[in-house]
Nucleic acid binder design. Structure first.
Lengths: 290, 290
DNA sequence: ATCAATCATGACTGTGAAGTCAGGTATTCT
DNA sequence: AGAATACCTGACTTCACAGTCATGATTGAT
């Protein structure tokens, strides 16, 4: 009996209602064995209780340890799961992956896209080993090291501007009102902050394109189809000849700090020291500067 | 498949040759799964290879963790295995057990008698959580705290002495030659040292009683049947009116240091800090003084 | 009240690991 | 060489768990 799925809402995993009975029974058996409630009723559905979460965490760790042992014996590299938001992943993390893997002794790396909030949970319960995450999305300063500070930039394709428009002109919010914009629509903090900033700058912000992620915003900017507000990460590689890039003043003080976040127990068990993690963070930051 | 017995020489465990085939097969399956040799041939018998030892350790830890979880959920106290040599256990540890248990939140304590040498191994591979052991029997100063220094004492029942014999008289090795002695015969370092010291004091040491442990030596002393050399621990409770007790000069500089020794991984996993362990050591030492 | 969703329970089947037995092979000792 | 020891292998039985299906119970929404 291998803990069915170690975590998350019982039935939710497979669409098959067949297995549901099995899972129900297995949970009951586990509860008998451990003499404790592992689930909690929430309306008509079940979720894991504290004890259940702890057991799930424990089992995940144990399986992970066995897997690590197997890999090590087979001479294979260990593997780590690294999580981040979509844009951080694409713009910051992926370019750094080869260097990270090298530093971890050729480890196999798996990336995992998460929203900030669920990333914290994922790290806490060991589904994700490392995460690049906004500092304000993790509970405390512990188990994090700073990677970089991130600002926001107004990016306007020059084809959308009158010839001769300067960066200073572009800082004028009156101009913004006339531009077609692309913006995120994921309801995340960044998205919300941008819309809020626009409003407080007196702009009636009605993006022409509302995208699921900032990646698509950048593509639209590159295509010359619309302007957009991009984080520092996302302006790398944009052609200054084609796109006018200027700091987005309303969010000047909104600088987000990205940190590398990890679960201390996990890392100890898997043989990574804080010094290693600091090095990793530095490597990731370097990648951005290069 | 539950790892048959996690450790020690495969067949040695049960006297049943039936099961041996099973164990053999199970080891083969494990080796297939992990893609590595878990055993090493030594003549005609098998012993665990390094990988095997590591896996056994890992499994023991995992089972221990599950057991801890179960106990915690059931509101039961955790349990710890404390090891020591027979005399240390009897004279030093057992009296301190109630206080130790109290300090560990009412933990269940299991004692385990070991020779010094195997104690170190037992701690290292997690069969024993805590040990009271001679400092020189553990590899380094790490993971230990001092409990007490131990000297040796010559103990002679007064019925074996002429009336009026003083402690000063008893320090004369010429007297010793005339006394019936009890001594250990366990071949341990302490035993050897005593015999060696006797010889270098010019005594032809031929104990009348050769005992499996110092506990029996003490009993013989109490009975008035023979003299004996007892460690500091062992003289507590001897009646000075009936037994003449005096430092055993030849071993004056042989003072043994007893330390509390633990496995750092174990303790971290099980929620004990170094400060707790220091306190335990102090409690054990206090017990002796009281 | 009715219906849908969600979980619990009982009965049954199939698979595979655990266990047992009956020989094997290799090594060591005398 | 012959016996004893320690382990391996194959064939078989037993048993527990995974998996499936049908159905009941509880809860929430309409």
């Amino acid at each position: 009996m291998q803990m069915a799925e170690a975590g998350s809402i019982a039935k939710a995993a497979p669409g098959k209602p067949n297995r549901q009975s099995q899972i129900s029974r297995q949970i009951r058996e586990l509860e008998q064995f451990f003499g404790t409630e592992l689930t909690r009723r929430k309306g008509k559905s079940l979720s894991l209780s504290n004890a259940g979460e702890r057991l799930a965490l424990l089992i995940r760790e144990q399986l992970q340890d066995l897997e690590d042992f197997r890999k090590e014996q087979a001479g294979l590299p260990k593997s780590f799961v690294i999580g981040a938001g979509a844009s951080v992943l694409e713009w910051l993390l992926v370019p750094a992956l080869p260097a990270i893997s090298r530093h971890l002794g050729g480890a196999t790396l798996m990336t995992d896209v998460h929203r900030s909030r669920s990333l914290g949970e994922a790290v806490r319960d060991g589904r994700v080993d490392l995460a690049i995450i906004r500092q304000d999305a993790v509970p405390k300063g512990a188990n994090t090291v700073l990677v970089m500070k991130m600002g926001f930039h107004l990016c306007v394709p020059r084809v959308l501007l009158k010839r001769g428009t300067t960066e200073r002109d572009a800082a004028n919010s009156a101009l913004w009102q006339t531009l077609p914009f692309a913006a995120g629509r994921d309801g995340g903090q960044t998205d919300t902050a941008i819309r809020e900033a626009m409003r407080s700058a007196g702009v009636d912000f009605r993006p022409h394109f509302e995208c699921g992620s900032m990646l698509q915003v950048r593509q639209l900017v590159e295509l010359g189809a619309s302007a957009g507000i991009l984080p520092t990460l996302g302006i790398r590689g944009l052609d200054e000849k084609k796109v006018l890039i200027t700091p987005f003043v309303p969010l000047r003080d909104f600088g987000r700090v990205l940190v590398l976040h990890w679960n201390p127990r996990q890392m100890r068990r898997r043989g990574l020291e804080t010094s290693d993690l600091k090095k990793l963070a530095a490597m990731i930051a370097d990648q951005q500067k290069a």
